[in-house]
Design a protein around this nucleic acid. Structure first.
Lengths: 199, 199
DNA sequence: ATATTTGCCTAACGAATGTTCGTTATGACC
DNA sequence: GGTCATAACGAACATTCGTTAGGCAAATAT
């Protein structure tokens, strides 16, 4: 992918993020790129390619992240921490693209949408494996794995709704707190004995 | 609001939910209502009214729910349970409208969008009060209130992404598990002594 | 019984949509 | 110096968009 094409892709991601795929027009993208609308077609085959590339590039990133985590031998708590860290890192490093990945994938063509959903399921499965492992190891509660994983991932994903690059919370701090929250919950533990050193 | 107008509103909500506000056209809505596009304008002033009414109707519902909870005297854990129950109930009872409320509000006009955000902040504030109360009462961990509330609400809201009306999980079950998850977290408690009877 | 409102119709409007066309200026390579 | 690829251009395309105007039949109200 040429530099100019990447540049256009990132402009498109910003506009898709701000206005949504359907509401961000080719003319908007062209204007933001200081180019006539027709000129974009020297670089892309069509509007959907911009969405398609974004969604699948991000899917690849997320999948590579979870695969790395699951390939290493650690206990489930450590793996979960790594997975959360990685997820937040990708999210905050590619904020616009992540928003598109999360919100706009449904505007993909039917065939590509099906492929995308499959990849996303694979990613969720990676998290489920971690949670299930934790239960098997006896360090996690015997929760409904599918349910808990969805709750977990939703907390991770909602970050894009409020994360501020120039805010006071660094990505690593967000990851720390989120991990702590998901691990410990709200309720105070009366007897802290015996759970030390778990994380 | 006349019956027919409500009917049209609900059709619009379904299509806004399925295709997004920008991609769901007046002609689509008309077709689904078995009517010519122009006929819709006997009932509505414009497309945006359908979005506007949906967003603010739902905002009212959610706000009324949290206000009811906060007006009663219970401890924070009980209040939180009630708030979660209420939230899930509204969500599952008005699934299409809730999705629009969550995803499509940014297509409101600038002025209305500002009003909407204010209402949504008020709702979040209602949850923050509960969490803060729990900390003050000494039954919740001393978490970052703003952060924890966002994580909590994100778990609640993500439900619309996977909830199936005909699935095996009833709304009340979802609320129970979600509450349990947020309260207890993943990590196993070694010494359960002394926390009985909290919920 | 007559007047009025309601709910829908056909037809059309101007604007915006994604895209295609033929062309052109600019350099790099043989 | 001729050939080719790149990246841009202005103009136009067919289509779709939200919306308006004017009329007509049935239901409702007076």
């Amino acid at each position: 992918m040429t530099d100019r094409k990447l540049e256009i892709l990132e402009i498109a991601q910003r506009l898709f993020c701000e206005n949504g795929y359907a509401a961000a027009s080719i003319r908007d993208i062209a204007k933001a790129a200081n180019v006539e609308p027709a000129s974009l077609y020297s670089h892309i085959n069509g509007k959907e390619e911009l969405l398609d590339r974004t969604c699948f590039m991000m899917a690849d990133k997320f999948l590579a992240g979870i695969d790395d985590v699951n390939d290493i031998y650690f206990d489930a708590a450590q793996k979960l921490k790594m997975a959360v860290d990685t997820h937040i890192n990708i999210l905050t490093n590619h904020l616009d693209a992540s928003v598109v990945f999360q919100r706009e994938w449904r505007y993909l063509s039917d065939e590509r949408k099906a492929e995308f959903i499959e990849l996303r399921n694979k990613y969720e499965e990676g998290f489920r494996v971690i949670v299930q492992t934790g239960i098997d190891e006896g360090i996690f509660n015997e929760v409904d794995v599918k349910f808990a994983t969805l709750a977990l991932l939703s907390s991770l994903n909602w970050i894009v709704e409020w994360y501020d690059k120039d805010g006071d919370l660094a990505p690593s701090e967000i990851a720390d707190r989120l991990y702590q929250f998901v691990l410990t919950g709200l309720k105070k533990r009366v007897s802290p004995q015996g759970v030390k050193g778990l994380m």
